[in-house]
């Protein structure tokens, strides 16, 4: 049986006046039904671009230059607009970071639900309204709020409205692009708990994108870590937490000061993320990597010249790093 969604060798470029910038570089992963997949990385690592490519909502100058996105075996990259319309929202929906920007400020919440539902399924206005009220109730908002306008709702409520909308047509996959980053920590927690409850009830799969690795470990089944457009590690969440392999993943894990235990000095990661218009040679992380020193000339040459491939280092655990597998013996 094929995976629910399979991203296969996806390449996305931004065509800028100064040249081609490769934002997503040969990324592959799959999502099984009902699974929560986390995609972690810093700004500019290509995680949001990957999400937008999956929904085919990239706008120029971005373009998909290669690869396939298979939904139940059908390649979305080859679909035309009419076919895409069929598949978006019915099968896969997205929640953006800023709820305020995804809601229309001059329409009531109810009108936006009705528009969206009637754009995708045959339904009378009153049926669509009834459905909208049930959805609001599902995410813990009073049914009467259907008459509210976005500005009358708090940030957390707006984000929950957007989540309810994403769930309206019972899609098999919901892509969540930093859905809680703009919210306060308490509201973030509340919404995450709600997503988890809804997910257990309706069994949709989630692609959850965030820079907050500690949140992903808690929330997802499997996690992919992206750096400079590439997937550098992919592993089950608990495994990634216990045994992160890639030095970048280790660094990210060490970038969140703990709330319990001894107050130790932690270093984070030195340097800054690279400019993708001119990415470093070899392993893209090598200029910031503490394991990359000329003291081991053979390894150093490999790290600075040869791009590491993803390889299996444990059960369902792949990593792209010269410290592991073939690279070590060579």
């Amino acid at each position: 049986m094929p995976a629910l969604l399979e991203v296969d060798d996806l390449v996305v470029d931004y065509l800028t006046p100064t040249g081609r910038v490769r934002a997503v570089d040969h990324v592959s992963f799959s999502i099984e039904p009902g699974e929560i997949i986390g995609l972690a990385g810093e700004s500019g690592c290509g995680k949001s671009t990957t999400a937008h490519a999956i929904l085919r909502i990239l706008r120029p100058p971005a373009q998909i230059s290669g690869g396939r996105v298979l939904f139940k075996g059908r390649d979305l990259v080859q679909m035309d607009e009419r076919q895409l319309r069929e598949y978006r929202w019915n099968h896969i929906s997205i929640v953006f970071q800023s709820a305020m920007n995804s809601l229309n400020p001059v329409l009531s919440v109810g009108d936006q639900f009705v528009d969206m539902i009637r754009a995708h399924v045959h339904s009378s206005k009153s049926d669509a309204r009834e459905r909208a009220m049930n959805l609001l109730q599902l995410v813990g908002i009073d049914r009467t709020r259907i008459r509210s306008f976005p500005h009358e709702l708090s940030g957390g409520m707006r984000q929950r409205v957007v989540i309810a909308m994403a769930l309206a047509l019972q899609p098999e996959i919901v892509v969540m692009d930093e859905p809680t980053t703009a919210l306060d920590v308490v509201v973030q927690r509340e919404i995450l708990q709600q997503i988890e409850e809804l997910q257990q009830e309706f069994k949709f799969a989630v692609l959850f994108i965030t820079h907050d690795l500690s949140l992903l470990v808690e929330f997802s089944d499997r996690i992919g870590v992206m750096y400079a457009g590439e997937l550098v590690e992919f592993a089950p969440a608990s495994r990634l937490f216990r045994e992160p392999k890639h030095p970048y993943t280790v660094g990210l894990m060490n970038s969140f000061p703990p709330l319990a235990g001894e107050r130790l000095t932690i270093q984070g990661i030195g340097g800054a993320p690279p400019n993708l218009a001119n990415p470093p040679s070899g392993c893209r992380f090598h200029p910031r990597c503490s394991h990359c020193t000329p003291s081991n000339p053979a390894l150093y040459a490999l790290q600075t010249r040869v791009k590491p491939e993803l390889q299996l280092v444990g059960e369902n655990h792949t990593v792209a790093c010269h410290l592991y597998g073939d690279g070590r013996e060579r």
């Binding site: 308490v186 973030q188 808690e218 937490f241």
Partner: peptide, 18 residues
């Protein structure tokens, strides 16, 4: 404090009443 993401335990392990 309880709302801070904590990789040690799952979401469901310590529900926050808010």
């Amino acid at each position: 404090l309880s709302a801070v993401p904590n990789p040690e335990g799952g979401l469901s392990h310590r529900r926050v009443e808010v």
